[in-house]
Design a protein around this nucleic acid. Structure first.
Lengths: 193, 193, 193, 193
DNA sequence: CATGAATGAGAATTCATTCAT
DNA sequence: TATGAATGAATTCTCATTCAT
């Protein structure tokens, strides 16, 4: 085990501990001492790896956005029919969040928080650029309704998020049938009549 | 001005101060001393009206849900055509939040927070019961797609929230045309083909 | 006992505790918890009366400068002979510091420290203005050697401080004879030949 | 370059870094990590050369006292007239501190601090013993007033320090004329009438 | 009910020192 | 010797809540 591995291990442990605690308890309700304990490091150690509590949040945000971006385009094949690709993206995102609920909850809570710096946000937009392009292309080619792409992106992301929340809150058991209703509703909301 | 009016006034001032501060700064970044100052009362006075900081949150939640419920059904006329009524509900909600952005932000932040007790939540469901019934009736009568009503409610509410967020974040100027696109997309996502 | 007396009492206790601890141990070696304990108040109480640790230092500085200014001109009689008045001022200052060694040590340590704000310093110059005027007058009337008044003030203050330090450090027992040597040397250093 | 030279170099770098930082920022406001960085060594390396932070202070103190002792007697010629030698010593010390302001500030701050051990102090008295003897001889031979030599030493050192402080604080521009006033005042304060 | 000084537990962060490499 | 990551005790300051007036 070389030095870098050791460093990475502690850093990893801190990030993971923070992610878990923060989604369960919230930023202000998660003292650093608790993060340290859960990560199995001394309190001071955290400050060798991060300048402040907020910096950890920013690192988590960046990682989760990258994860999300990767999941989104998984198994995409550009020769497929547009609607199929839309469904795949939608479901990729949905199941990514279902599989990583803490990541979803974190992004919901902190995506619009002042803790995430503008720089961090901008640096991480690139991850979902391919899908933004995909939607823009849908509009341009007349497959999707003529909407502003920002509105389009927001509506589609919103529909995924709504379904994920329903599942996670256990308000509704999101079986395959209901997921199908969700993606179909989302598609119908944006496709050209 | 009788005693009760005076009491009500202080209570009001506290609630309003807390609502404003909490939406701007967040729960943990809003000390009670700041609430007291903004409300123009002594710190101790707050504790004559509320048992704790969390209790104020619950009262705010209840009020905002009531406001929202009232706004939702405004100018509804049950003899109107179903789609028109859907549009009216959707736009009622949308403009209510546009007119009361702090109320929207508060509900987004705290609707799923542990501060809001189960009791508070349940007590306040009644406010939008009429609209839930309206959507259930749409499904039953074949106007809306055959979806679970919880999913339906969530999707529609989600689409309103998405548009409000776009407006408030100033990501997109939500002019009348874009609002129209929003409500139309929402309708298309749930109406029977 | 009215409210003001109570407030004054706690505030006083804090200032006195801080003065004693800080002269014995130094600023950074004096934790606020120790000040609180010595003052017989809770740690948080200190922050009702002072914004920060540094603010207390500034208040102490201001008080001690005022004390010093008062002591300096005690029993001065302007009709007296110039040399007698010089001796009186010198000895007033000397015995004031001998009687209040902590005040002396505090001023030695913090008079030139960055903790004391410019504002605090300027506000407190007025206390020894009368003596500055007295020395300037001495130069002007030909009783004192023709030196810049700043140099004059510094040399005289320095000679007092030197004698006080010798006494406090117990390097030398400053009996009346030695004090007399001190003031005489100081006078000889500035008087016109 | 042999090993010893390397070691000496690091040790030197540490001492110099600490001296500079400590006079600018103070003992407690100077973290060892900062010393390490400024010295261009690792934090741990410091502890191969010194047992503790305080030990460095003691080494610095010893060096500066030696420097001061050397400067003091520079160009002294015992056959010269007593007053001339006094002037020379006084000005040697004055210009030594003017040329090495950090050394002066360090000695002012730490000469009476608990960090400097008794042992360190005693070991370093020898450096200015020649001048103490010189002053004692002045008393004995009737050139100086009959004062205790400790008082004499303190008064003279005090007058040098006063002038140096005026210069360093920029309160007064200490041109040659004013320095002359300073040394003359000091001489007048101790010489037999 | 109203006040606001007082409380004290608990927060984020710092830093001298150690020790495995 | 040299390194620098790791330690964890200690620091200043905050803030929800209480309670005597």
């Amino acid at each position: 085990m070389n030095n870098e591995t050791i460093n990475t291990e502690k850093r990893e442990a801190i990030v993971q501990a923070m992610l878990e605690l923060i989604t369960e308890r919230g930023f202000h309700a998660t003292p650093m001492s608790m993060v340290a304990e859960k990560a199995g490091v001394a309190a001071g150690t955290i400050y060798h790896h991060f300048k402040s509590k907020e910096e950890i949040i920013n690192e988590i945000y960046a990682r989760l956005k990258a994860n999300m971006g990767e999941a989104l385009v998984r198994e995409d094949a550009s020769e497929e029919d547009y609607k199929k690709r839309f469904y795949r993206f939608w479901l990729n995102l949905y199941y990514h969040f279902i599989d990583h609920p803490k990541e979803f909850l974190f992004l919901e809570q902190y995506a619009n928080s002042p803790f995430i710096t503008k720089v961090t946000k901008e640096e991480n937009q690139r991850y979902y650029q391919p899908v933004i392009d995909f939607l823009a292309e849908g509009v341009w080619s007349g497959i999707l309704r003529n909407m502003d792409v920002e509105l389009l992106v927001a509506m589609v992301y919103g529909s995924v998020a709504t379904c994920v929340k329903l599942h996670l809150s256990k308000e509704l058991d999101m079986n395959q049938n209901r997921v199908q209703q969700g993606v179909q509703a989302s598609w119908d909301s944006v496709k050209m009549d």
